[in-house]
């Protein structure tokens, strides 16, 4: 076990790849904010497909203002463009 742990530690040092935790956390926060903004319309659509009940109400209440902000900033265009593209190419969407 000790030798295994040592090997893995050596491998980590050898690879020396990657970044520190604070940088990864900041990247993740940026990713989440960007993703939510870029995909707000899709999130709202998914929320609207949930069965009626408190979960749907909460999801709709959370996604509605984000979708509105996304539409206002035209951030939803990228996904809509690709959705239209894939639908016209192969009728992949329902």
């Amino acid at each position: 076990m000790d030798s295994n742990a040592q090997n893995i530690e050596e491998e980590r040092v050898q690879i020396n790849a990657g970044r520190d935790l604070s940088c990864v956390t900041r990247s993740l926060i940026v990713f989440v904010l960007f993703s939510v903004l870029l995909n707000a319309s899709g999130l709202q659509r998914s929320a609207s497909l949930l069965p009626f009940g408190p979960r749907r109400r909460i999801c709709m209440a959370l996604t509605r203002p984000v979708a509105a902000a996304s539409a206002h900033l035209h951030a939803d265009r990228l996904r809509l463009w690709f959705e239209r593209f894939s639908a016209s190419e192969g009728q992949y969407h329902d």
């Binding site: 990713f31 870029l38 463009w81 593209f85 969407h93 329902d94």
Partner: peptide, 20 residues
């Protein structure tokens, strides 16, 4: 971190847009 997070978010959006 800004570019890394942004690039990943954009590619994710393209993937979600292309998929059924």
């Amino acid at each position: 971190f800004l570019l890394h997070g942004g690039i990943v978010a954009i590619i994710l959006t393209i993937i979600l847009g292309l998929g059924p």
